[in-house]
């Protein structure tokens, strides 16, 4: 590898033995349960739970409350006559259409981000010229650029390209802004692949693509998981790009639709909150099904 390592302090930290990527909950390292219980920590933990749960409890019970019931009753006591009417109103207002838009944008963005970031990382780590290191420095700069700050030129560019108010307007810029962090995370893993493995594959006559697919991909699975999950969350939840780059109902994504529901349902708070609850259901299902992988994946790549 090149010698200008000083510029990228990230690499120094790579040497920790095992990437915590594998979802093996390793709790044995922690302190022995024989010591006296930490009462203060326990109380604080349950208090934080209350802080976390109260708002969620509030929106769930309100989403099942009838509109007329809202102002009269105690907002923290569930309604005695729960109704599904709010959810019906939300679903009748094209909820699934907006949901589908979000799925398309998220899948397209994450798939491209994974592919191009992986390829770029392979080039950066294995390039024999100085180009790899230079490219890495430029891309690292991208982590420090606040995305929000470039939104005006992005808006101009998207208009000029004739992409305003299309799903492309959401996909293309979000790919670009996801690349720096993704490359950083993946590079950290690709670097740990022993050089001999690359050499021996090359000896066997493997081309670049074969090396990429049969060596780099399997060795960077934890990094790819982190990038995939983290960026999917970012795109799925993203609000600024849709707010500025789209307008019509056809291309509306979920977060923007929540915002629009609020305007549309104006005084219909239970319906707005029903939409909020519905918008969290897909991620809740994913969390229930793959909690271990999601929690481990979210942090594995950041693991220094």
């Amino acid at each position: 590898m090149s010698t200008e390592t000083v510029k990228t302090p990230e690499r120094a930290a790579e040497k920790v033995v095992t990437p915590a990527g594998r979802p093996t909950p390793n709790r044995r390292k922690a302190r022995k349960p024989t010591e006296r219980p930490n009462v203060l920590a326990g109380i604080s933990g349950w208090l934080w739970l209350a802080v976390i749960i109260l708002p969620i409890y509030f929106i769930v019970i309100t989403a099942f409350r009838d509109r007329s019931d809202l102002a009269q009753s105690n907002p923290l006591v569930p309604s005695t006559e729960p109704t599904l009417g709010n959810f019906v109103r939300v679903i009748e207002n094209d909820f699934f259409h907006f949901f589908l838009n979000s799925v398309i944008v998220t899948l397209a963005t994450v798939a491209v981000v994974l592919a191009v970031s992986l390829m770029a990382s392979y080039y950066i780590v294995r390039s024999v010229s100085a180009g790899g290191q230079r490219l890495f420095s430029v891309i690292l700069l991208g982590i420090a650029i606040p995305v929000q700050a470039t939104i005006i030129p992005v808006y101009y560019l998207i208009r000029q390209l004739g992409l305003y108010d299309t799903l492309w307007a959401l996909i293309l810029p979000q790919i670009a802004f996801a690349i720096p962090l993704s490359v950083l995370i993946i590079v950290n893993f690709v670097r740990d692949i022993p050089a001999e493995l690359f050499e021996s594959m090359r000896m066997d006559g493997a081309g670049e693509w074969k090396i990429l697919w049969n060596l780099v991909v399997p060795m960077s699975i934890p990094a790819l998981m982190t990038v995939g999950i983290y960026q999917a969350l970012q795109v799925w939840n993203g609000f600024l790009f849709p707010l500025i780059l789209t307008q019509s109902r056809d291309v509306r994504v979920l977060p923007l639709s929540l915002w629009e529901y609020q305007g549309q349902f104006a005084i219909d708070v239970p319906a707005t909150l029903a939409a909020v609850v519905l918008s969290a259901v897909p991620l809740l299902v994913a969390y229930i099904l793959g909690r271990r992988y999601i929690v481990a994946g979210l942090t594995a790549g950041f693991g220094k």
Binding site: Y122, Y123, R126, V128, E208
Partner: peptide, 12 residues
């Protein structure tokens, strides 16, 4: 020995 710049081109 290194991969070609084409690998990095899409990201760039």
């Amino acid at each position: 020995k290194g991969p070609s710049f084409l690998m990095a081109l899409p990201a760039v």
